[in-house]
Write a protein that binds this DNA or RNA. Structure first.
Lengths: 118, 118
DNA sequence: CGTATATTCACCCATATGGATGAATATAGT
DNA sequence: ACTATATTCATCCATATGGGTGAATATACG
């Protein structure tokens, strides 16, 4: 079952468990950006942004290219494939559940039409 | 972009960011289990297990059915669909990256065959 | 009714997190 | 050299986390 490094998945899911960091990832999906650009976009301090970026780097989701005094951040979605792969195992469970729900709805509609009144 | 509740995704990704909790989910994918059964399977105390379960419940990944003095836990993978959906947006980025890597490998192989020595 | 079992509650502890501020470092521009 | 800009480092604070232990609660069993 655990073909992925547990520690890596810890960092990966942990990095994605914060709304600010998910917003940073969404922003970087549009284009690379500097730390200041990210900070101004999310109304949190520059230092907080810097910390979030470090968390994202540790998870491997963001890479940094230092160009002079500017640090350019890039999205690196690669590791997300591991998270998606881990989730994939469970897809059968939620699709089964949806299928069961659909059955229920169909059956209920049938009863509403042809079943006993109230 | 954020069609999912940010708070929900926080809890969801947060719940999946711990190896013990992922192991609990994997165990519950096989069959329902009681708290004690889960605790004995993972060599952590009953109370730690109880806490992990609460985290999983808060994320909606586990449901509890109290039967007498026993609490039977069940996997509820439904919310994972949201996490998977969130990740889906980024699939293009990691597949693009894999495609780029493949291009590079092919190009390199070509150079190794026909390019200048050294 | 008394006792064993299943689980949670109330704490305690060490560490991590998210946020802030002020100082330090590094680079660009003049 | 001086100054402005970009970013991190060092702290501090409140809160959360993961782990533990011992007591409390609830239910089953004899």
């Amino acid at each position: 079952m655990d073909e992925y490094s547990a520690h890596h998945l810890d960092d990966l899911f942990g990095a994605m468990s914060d709304a600010t960091r998910r917003a940073i990832l969404a922003r970087l999906a549009q284009s690379d950006a500097r730390v200041t650009e990210l900070a101004s976009a999310f109304t949190i301090s520059l230092n907080s942004t810097s910390k979030h970026i470090r968390v994202l780097e540790r998870a491997g989701l963001v890479t940094r290219s230092v160009q002079g005094r500017e640090h350019v951040l890039s999205l690196n979605a690669g590791p997300m494939a591991e998270a998606a792969g881990w989730l994939e195992f469970y897809r059968q469970f939620w699709t089964d559940r949806l299928a069961a729900l659909e059955d229920f709805v169909v059956k209920k509609r049938h009863l509403d039409k042809h079943g006993s009144k109230q």
